[in-house]
Design a protein around this nucleic acid. Sequence first.
DNA 1: CTCTATTAATTAACATGTTATATAAATACG
DNA 2: CGTATTTATATAACATGTTAATTAATAGAG
Lengths: 126, 126
Amino acid sequence: MGPIRNMLADVGITEQQWRVLRILEESGPLDPTRIAEQACLLLPSLTRILQKLDEKDLIGREVDPHDRRKQIVRITAQGERLIAENLDTSVQLMDEIREQIGEDRYEMLLDLLNELDDQGQEVEET
Amino acid sequence: MGPIRNMLADVGITEQQWRVLRILEESGPLDPTRIAEQACLLLPSLTRILQKLDEKDLIGREVDPHDRRKQIVRITAQGERLIAENLDTSVQLMDEIREQIGEDRYEMLLDLLNELDDQGQEVEET
DNA sequence: CTCTATTAATTAACATGTTATATAAATACG
DNA sequence: CGTATTTATATAACATGTTAATTAATAGAG
């Protein structure tokens, strides 16, 4: 179990749920499609994750009054509290990982993964 | 859907099942623990994959006579035929991916991922 | 030799990945 | 205006990832 996964298990959420929460906290209210883009998740996965976060009262959802197909998802005060209580530890753990592999190598890895991801998108469009 | 996944879907197996089959074809009969190591799979996942491959008669299994806790898993003639009929296409598709990202970058990516794996770390974005 | 600890594999329970399909609402268009 | 198409989200069905618990067999200590 990764150290970050350990920490999150203690507060009862998964890595993806944490990821979605952080996106909502940083970017403000969003509709599911945009959350999925930012989190690199497919919509069926995101649907389930939002249902879990909703049950835990970490997010709230309203129908978009301008387009009733859409939702507006926003983090709750309780969700913000959960982030505030764990962000420092999370950042610290990420720093340790970056240190162990090396800052430059870490950046390179992220670049390569993004490049691979971009390529995957192109292939889909044919 | 990735191009390789597409090809495998046509013959009715998944990428992981293909991966396990190829390991058995290259390395010969193995016990599940060693297959899991080579395929970077956890044993519970491998257990299910072996069950599926067994149902499709692509592998066979016997109890190890020297240690009856262990199994000896081997690919069947039908499994070897499936690989023979698809290996060329698979290698071709992988070559295309390597070309698109670049040979040097591809090697670098594999190195970095192996390094991460050696450290027992995981790619976790906060 | 017996009892306990360890090992190999499986099962259970839950979360996510992936593709196909469904449903409702908005848009396009004749 | 009414119907066909598109868009946003959800559901279904199956495969895998992940951790804990279980079972059967072996190895080891006393």
